[in-house]
Simulated assay, not measured.
Amino acid sequence: MTEGQYLSGRILLAMPGMYDPRFERSVNVMCVHDEHGALGIGIGHIRDGVRFRGLLEEVGIDPGDAPDREVHHGGPVEPGRGFVLHSTDWGGQDTIAVEPLCALSASLDVLRAIAEGRGPRHWLIALGYAGWGAGQLEGEMRQHGWYAAGGHREILFDTPTDARWTSTWRADGIDPSFLANTTGRA
């Protein structure tokens, strides 16, 4: 892929009938994608039994007045590692810009800032990530695995988790009820 074809800052959607059931109706913010591979954070599924305030307590941070939000299943890789997708009004030493969609932070600093009420205005937290080696994602896209939607900020921060898959398709002008579970070959 050329630089303009990389998917950083876009939303990756699992196609209906995807071959890997772990990613059924998956919605991933593509944070890094280049010639070396890709990293996405899942925002379409919730981690059962895990809440933000409990996570703060687990890492030794006083939750203060932090809201007790749901924690997303970010992906199958390193499921104990936390990531915060957030608005660009906050940035720490290790914050990565995910243009034009958001920023990504994975340090305790962002968690402390949120707990103390000085963090980003918009944020969500996920445990784990989805990762692809060099050329792997491109191959999966050719095999009816993924669709690369636009980077719709309103999907990330203003749409309920269980509505993100359908809402992202619709934001790209596609009715997902018309999608087939398989692709053909010409």
Rank of each mutant, 00 (worst) to 15 (best):
V84P: 01
R118H: 14
E116A: 13
L85I: 02
D94V: 06
V110T: 05
S87T: 11
L108G: 12
A115K: 00
V110K: 03
D109A: 12
C102V: 01
F83C: 06
L85M: 07
A115V: 15
L101Q: 05
R81G: 03
L101Y: 04
T88G: 13
R112L: 05
E78N: 13
G82F: 04
E116W: 09
G82C: 06
H86M: 08
V110S: 05
S87N: 12
P120R: 09
E78F: 13
V84L: 08
V110H: 03
A115D: 12
W90V: 05
A115C: 11
I114T: 04
P79G: 08
E99V: 12
R121N: 11
Q93T: 15
A106S: 15
A115P: 08
D94E: 12
R81C: 08
S87W: 00
G82P: 02
I114C: 06
P79R: 14
V110F: 08
A97Q: 10
G117K: 00
P120W: 00
T88D: 14
V98G: 07
L104F: 00
S107L: 01
A103D: 13
P76C: 07
G75L: 02
V98T: 04
P79I: 07
A106E: 15
D89S: 09
D94A: 07
L111S: 02
G75V: 02
E116T: 11
P100V: 12
S107R: 00
T95S: 15
D94L: 09
S87K: 10
G92A: 07
G75F: 01
I114H: 05
L108A: 14
P79F: 05
T88V: 10
